[in-house]
């Protein structure tokens, strides 16, 4: 049983005009086995939430706490957070020229588990994960994210989710830029992950479209750096019908 607890989290970024507060007190608890969807308009700070939890150096924590089973996540380095069980699938995965997907995955898995994966099962696991994401086996020999199409990048993120098998998946706009077929493939991958014992997901999205394939336990509407309203799956349906207007006008 593991719990990610975010309490009154405040985050700012440096801009040309000085520090700008993006997150203005976010409180959220995700229990083991739960899927939470965070939905919000552009610029509401929902991606900042994911990157702050993962430890991106661009963001300065100015207040609040993030704990994983009581351990202070904010004190951890980025790789320590991953070792503690966090995984961030990025909206724009970064190119790493000259580093093959195979080398990257093996290095990551070794770092996470503290030992090199057994060769025989490893190759099978990687090929299986690639296959599930409809990625060609030669994909492993390509440089990480270099020259990948938008859809390939997202499917590669979910293949990593499968292989690295974290406890908590933070998925930042995993659905953006995907056509309907790719969206189905990605959603299936996420659902496979959720089917594993005790896995938690924080699904950040702008659109309700992905929620046709992934049924969240909780839905939160994120506006102007904080959670404006929380509810069940029906809240997503309301957003699908009416958009964010009710929340954005209230925030102003």
């Amino acid at each position: 049983m593991s719990t990610l607890e975010i309490k009154d989290l405040r985050v700012s970024v440096e801009t040309e005009d000085g520090a700008k507060e993006i997150l203005k007190g976010v409180t959220l608890t995700i229990n083991s086995g739960e899927t939470h969807a965070i939905m919000g308009p552009n610029g509401s700070g929902k991606s900042t939430l994911a990157y702050s939890i993962a430890g991106h150096p661009k963001y300065t924590i100015t207040g609040g706490t993030v704990t994983l089973d009581g351990e202070d996540v904010l004190e951890m380095s980025v790789d320590e957070r991953a070792k503690a069980g966090l995984f961030l699938a990025m909206q724009y995965p970064v190119e790493v020229p000259g580093v093959s997907v195979a080398n990257f995955l093996r290095t990551a898995k070794t770092a996470l588990t503290g030992e090199a994966p057994k060769l025989r099962t490893w190759v099978k696991d990687v090929n299986g994960a690639m296959d599930k994401m409809h990625l060609d086996p030669t994909f492993s020999q390509r440089s990480v994210n270099e020259g990948f199409s938008g859809g390939e990048k997202k499917r590669h993120e979910i293949a990593q989710l499968d292989i690295l098998d974290p406890a908590f998946a933070l998925l930042d706009e995993i659905d953006s830029g995907l056509d309907i077929d790719a969206l189905k493939v990605v959603s299936e991958g996420i659902n496979d992950f959720r089917a594993r014992e005790g896995k938690s997901v924080l699904l950040i999205t702008h659109y309700t479209r992905i929620l046709r394939y992934i049924k969240p336990d909780h839905v939160h509407v994120f506006v102007a750096g904080r959670i404006a309203e929380s509810g069940g799956p029906d809240l997503a349906e309301e957003l699908e019908a009416n958009g964010y207007e009710r929340f954005t006008s209230a925030a102003v």
Binding site: A54, S77, V78, D79, R81, M90, A108, A111, L112
Partner: peptide, 9 residues
Amino acid sequence: FYLQSRGIS
């Protein structure tokens, strides 16, 4: 950041 977020030091 990308590499570290996968557990790599």
